[in-house]
């Protein structure tokens, strides 16, 4: 479905994506894995032909630069940063995108239903929560029933239950034969959705592996998410790093990888530094940060 050859995208002197090639077959599901700044978002934008780049990318045989409109009609896209016209109502907004994709209101209604937004048509977009906006974005991506769905951090604005719903929806879609491309920070998503992981570092593709290759089943490490009181995230991350933990900070909280039998360690370290922990959760059973993404904490 998607073929990328020697894709390079520079912003000034910095190469955000550097000579990267990959191929993606029908009904495949791949995850882009890498630290912030590894070039995942830029690669996704290249795939959608949103700006010029060197090399070439085709979707369904259509060059995304030369025949971007047709190429993009194969793709539903969920962006990382959600930017909508805040004054519009949800109903008219999704109808607008239905118009752009030339499908009718029934398709728009179906898409809203799929993501659980049916009944909210009268709400103004500025009144939607981050999670609802994220689901709206997913609905917009799904309106025209495209064969490929590209998602940039699809669950970053969602709470745990919302995330589960979205991942369930995506699993359904994958099982129906959709091709998925998504960037994610969350190993659990990668494992449950992807059958291949492209590990990116500084704009280059370093490994193309299966999730199980990346996270061997019996890795003696677990990921915990800590919810720290407002504003202390950075400080807490620093404390944990000094205590020798792999730390990943995102909008949802602080993720720490710890040996399975040492889960109290980070809690203790933070308590010692007088940082209040509001809550914590164990994210997944047996996944660990892959070796290649230890850089992430520095990003």
């Amino acid at each position: 479905m998607i073929k990328a050859h020697h894709v390079t995208k520079r912003f000034g002197k910095v190469a955000a994506v550097n000579d990267l090639s990959f191929e993606l077959g029908e009904s495949e599901s791949i995850a882009l894995w890498g630290s912030n700044g590894a070039g995942k978002t830029t690669l996704i934008r290249c795939v959608l032909g949103m700006f010029p780049f060197k090399g070439n990318i085709t979707i369904g045989g259509h060059d995304v630069r030369k025949r971007g409109k047709i190429a993009r009609s194969f793709v539903g896209y969920v962006p990382q940063e959600l930017a909508f016209h805040d004054d519009a109502r949800l109903g008219s907004s999704i109808l607008f995108f239905a118009g752009l994709k030339r499908v009718d209101a029934t398709a728009a209604a179906n898409a809203l239903h799929m993501v659980g937004l049916a009944g909210h048509e009268n709400k103004r977009l500025r009144d939607l929560s981050g999670g609802m906006k994220q689901r709206l974005a997913l609905a917009i991506a799904l309106i025209a029933d495209p064969p490929i769905i590209v998602l940039d951090e699809p669950t970053s604005n969602l709470d745990a239950s919302g995330r589960e719903e979205v991942v369930d929806t995506l699993i359904q879609l994958r099982d129906k034969g959709k091709t998925l491309v998504f960037a994610s920070h969350r190993p659990d998503e990668v494992v449950s959705l992807a059958n291949r992981v492209l590990v990116m570092e500084k704009g280059q593709l370093v490994r193309s592996v299966t999730p199980t290759e990346l996270w061997p089943t019996h890795a003696p490490v677990q990921t915990m998410r800590l919810h720290i009181s407002m504003g202390s995230d950075e400080l807490a991350a620093e404390v944990l790093r000094q205590a020798g933990h792999a730390v990943h900070l995102n909008g949802q909280g602080l993720c720490v990888s710890v040996p399975r039998n040492r889960k109290a360690q980070p809690l203790a370290a933070l308590a010692q530094a007088s940082i209040e922990i509001r809550d914590f959760e164990i994210l997944d059973e047996v996944l660990a940060q892959p070796a290649s993404s230890t850089e992430e904490s520095k990003a």
């Binding site: 959608l48 793709v75 962006p79 930017a83």
Partner: peptide, 9 residues
């Protein structure tokens, strides 16, 4: 950006 990702030229 979002608009440019849609199937329009």
């Amino acid at each position: 950006l979002y608009l440019l990702a849609q199937p329009i030229s």
